[in-house]
Design a protein around this nucleic acid. Structure first.
Length: 398
RNA sequence: GGGGGGAUGUCCGAGUGGUUAAAGGAGACGGGCUGUAAACCCGUUGGCUCUGCCUACACAGGUUCGAAUCCUGUUCCCCCCA
């Protein structure tokens, strides 16, 4: 694998683009020649510390670079986060304080460690606050690099401009700062999702303006979320977090549309084994197991599947059902459901009215909203197909 | 600096004084069918102490028996001109 050509081919196999053509081979060859590891850069946003499968795609790619002997440079965007990204129209993001950024960065590293090799010679973590707090004169020098037409060529900008939606100057400045990061850490290669295409390419302009060698860029396709339509993102609620319970990971994976199986397998670099040749359902189960094994620990996939089958094929109840305590006497069902499942009482009422609530297998209806707690003690209340809670009557010994 | 347009529920989007908790769509949720897939069908979708009450159409006041709809001020956004 030390052959630069085959290494490049391997690394690019599931990438969206490697630009400019041949740059990756060239860099790998240079590393070989100079017998030094490449510096592979990824910028991260310290506002969202929950790593999900969408983030994993790029992290996995970084891991592949590491396994080939190269060095990953993670840049925590503490400075850019402090500026407060105004994009996203209506919702102004809260500006984070130092403590939050520290905390988020720490969480991020902890979670990324599930994918990356965290050995110091393989992973370097930097904060762009180290260099972005620059004198105005330096910033002005940066600001003459991009041309407005160039910035407006960008898909999202041109689209927004055409549609008359706001673009703040700060958003124009972002690529500059990100590009300067590449200068500061002497990046050989920068990775990102395809949404970062402009930014990573622009890093080359900034490097050139500073008389530095220009980085190669590798962009990965954006993983589609479990809704099968939009890119995976926490704010869209179509994500699977790497720290989630295996049963949850398994279950949510089983909900993805069949058409997504190949993409997930390829982008997450998972091996489905012999099941890969089977029917869609079998393949999806294999995928779900593989994801569990990868992030929740070896063997967790098989266990999750067993539980899944028991609960959803057999109509059973999961092993570890959260408990909800109630006082002795009558229980007001809407209140109970609201407390147990985080729904509003009105929602709970509706669910009851629609026959979506059961105690063990007995349907609870909206005819009787107050029931003696003794009738529910020890039983599992279930809303819909996958929300469970075991009821316990608080003992009255106090 | 001047002129014009706009802000409606999770999102999109109707609605210009009264039966509007607010059309329609999307999404989400519950049910049916299934493989917790797709497609399809039905229902729900502000909150609550629920045959009623409370809060809601950027924010604050005002007019009116009655306002998302009219008036005033404020904030934010977009466009055009300079």
């Amino acid at each position: 694998m030390s052959d630069p050509l085959s290494a490049a081919e391997y690394l690019a196999r599931n990438a969206a683009a490697v630009q400019p053509a041949g740059a990756l081979e060239e860099r790998l060859a240079a590393a070989e020649r100079e017998s030094r590891p490449l510096r592979v850069k990824l910028g991260i946003d310290p506002t969202a510390p929950d790593i999900h499968l969408g983030h994993v795609v790029v992290l996995q790619k970084l891991r592949e670079f590491q396994d080939l002997g190269h060095r990953v440079v993670l840049i925590v965007g503490d400075y850019t986060a402090r500026v407060g990204d105004p994009s996203g129209r209506s919702a102004t993001r809260p500006v984070l304080g130092d403590d939050d950024i520290d905390e988020n960065a720490r969480t991020y590293q902890e979670q990324a460690g599930r994918i990356l090799d965290t050995a110091p010679e393989r992973l370097e973590v930097r904060r762009n606050g180290e260099w972005l707090d620059m004198p105005m004169t330096e910033f002005l020098a940066l600001a003459r690099i991009p041309k407005v037409a160039q910035l407006l060529e960008r898909d999202d900008f041109s689209k927004r401009y055409r549609e008359g939606r706001p673009i703040s100057l700060l958003e124009f400045v972002y690529p500059l700062l990100q590009g300067y990061d590449s200068v500061a850490v002497e990046a050989d290669i920068e990775l990102g999702g395809t949404d970062q295409t402009f930014n990573v390419l622009f890093g080359r302009d900034v490097q050139r303006a500073h008389g530095r060698p220009e980085q190669a860029t590798l962009t990965m396709p954006l993983l589609v979320g479990i809704d099968g339509v939009q890119k995976m993102s926490k704010s869209l609620g179509n994500h699977i977090g790497v720290t989630e319970e295996p049963t949850e990971i398994f279950g949510r994976t089983m909900r993805i549309p069949d058409g997504l199986i190949d993409q997930w397998r390829d982008l997450l670099a998972l091996d489905l084994g012999p099941d890969d040749a089977a029917d869609a359902r079998t393949r999806k189960r294999a995928l779900a197991r593989a994801i569990c094994d990868r992030f929740a620990g070896d063997g967790s996939g098989a266990r999750a599947q067993e539980e899944f089958d028991r609960v959803f094929l057999g109509g059973g109840v999961p092993d570890d059902v959260p408990e909800i305590e109630v006082e002795a006497g009558d229980v007001h069902l809407p209140a109970l459901l609201a407390a147990a499942f985080g729904m509003s009482r009105s929602e709970a009422r509706r669910a009851l009215g629609q026959g979506g609530v059961r105690a063990d297998d007995e349907p609870l209806t909206s005819e009787r909203l107050d029931v003696p707690s003794a009738d529910l003690d020890g039983r599992v209340v279930r809303v819909g197909k996958r929300r469970f809670a075991r009821v316990r009557v608080r003992s009255v010994d106090a």
